[in-house]
Design a protein around this nucleic acid. Structure first.
Lengths: 221, 221
DNA sequence: ACTAATGTACGAACTGGTGAGTTAGTAATA
DNA sequence: TATTACTAACTCACCAGTTCGTACATTAGT
């Protein structure tokens, strides 16, 4: 009850621009992922940080740029994770299966990222298009797929006529849908695609699907 | 059957509750699909109709209920389409491929529906959950898949251990992702998944994938 | 002392929703 | 047929609360 006018020393927090920005990004990521871009409230985001709304405008300029910054950081995380991929010591079949499993795991572990991407798609990917940072971001995973695919096709193990981008789309679609459409799918068909008890089932299903596709005997014509 | 008591509505100028409601739903569908639930403006929706905002509240009660009504109608369309499925005269392999192709086509032809479902997932499917109409809507496609699957498994043609819901998820994920994630995927990897020139390629890819998975030789253990 | 970092208070524009009144269609009645 | 009574369909103007953004004051670190 020290009713003496206490200087705004609420917590022993020192000034730290990087820390403040990171905190804003953390909260903004949660909020945007939770309710979308238009649904998110700048005041709410500010209220959940230890700083003020003014700082959001000071550091990011506006709601739109804040969302872009959130996207940039989220994509940065996944790119960093992809850079740690280490599957090329395996034979092509095992490598692809392992890669699919890692994609599966990563999607499951980052539902907020999935939601952000869904939201960005609703907005026609306009923030990605406007971002220099995201414009020419390479995909390490794509490079890995490309090499494995080439090796598997050269040895005749892989018969399918796909390139790395297509295979990446195939793997991603399954992993992404499972998380992104969890709610409507569950509500309509009574099955939770992210039920932990079913996790191994769907993980194996993905691997089986991709390998079956890549190695299936082709019809000659 | 020239019914005399048919209300005279030669042009759209006369009063017609059903017509007004349908017009509101049409416009609302476009708007919600375009900018999401929170992004949509009731005033804008009203302005694009030939009636007024007050009518939206008169007929639907509010923005939330309007969105639910939009969803209900959108799901009704897809259910009606599924009811016209006629593939069971084909052998299991051909039937599944045809079903996958029809799903592929339907997704491609209804991008607004895809967007609405994406939006509803951002909202945790709360509108579907709250809707009596959508709560216990059966899926004709699921019944068809179930029968084909059973037939194919009984004959030993299909070796995969999946049920109809899982297979539906697999097919849907590919078709849905291709449309829903078109923009981010295109921006990041420089490939338009909905490019008409690539349409047949992806359509075949889906069928090949599903059939390869269902008929792949299983490892005995 | 100087500047980057931060906080407070405020406002113009917007947004979902509503109150109150009007018009068109219809059916019963005279 | 003409009048009346009634209701569904509709319009307009406005409110109460919200929302993004900013002007201005203040503080901490060097």
């Amino acid at each position: 009850m020290t009713s003496v006018e206490e200087p705004a020393r609420s917590n022993g927090r020192t000034r730290d621009a990087a820390r403040t920005q990171a905190e804003i990004l953390d909260v903004a990521t949660q909020e945007f992922a939770r309710v979308g871009f238009a649904g998110a409230r700048v005041d709410d985001i500010a209220a959940r940080t230890s700083t003020t709304k003014r700082m959001i405008y000071y550091y990011f300029g506006g709601k739109e740029q804040l969302f872009t910054a959130v996207l940039e950081r989220a994509y940065g995380v996944i790119r960093d994770a992809e850079q740690e991929l280490d599957v090329e010591h395996l034979d092509p079949v095992a490598a692809i299966r392992r890669l699919a499993e890692l994609t599966f795991d990563h999607h499951e572990q980052h539902p907020d990222f999935i939601r952000l991407v869904s939201i960005e798609n609703i907005h026609g990917a306009e923030h990605i298009a406007a971002s220099e940072k995201l414009g020419r971001i390479g995909s390490p995973a794509l490079d890995v797929i490309r090499r494995i695919l080439e090796s598997g096709q050269k040895s005749g193990l892989f018969t399918a006529d796909v390139d790395a981008v297509d295979l990446h789309a195939m793997i991603s679609s399954f992993c992404f849908f499972r998380v992104s459409n969890r709610h409507t799918f569950g509500a309509l068909f009574g099955r939770d695609l992210v039920d932990p008890a079913q996790r191994e089932h769907y993980r194996a299903m993905l691997g089986d699907m991709v390998i079956a596709y890549l190695t299936a005997p082709r019809a000659e014509d």
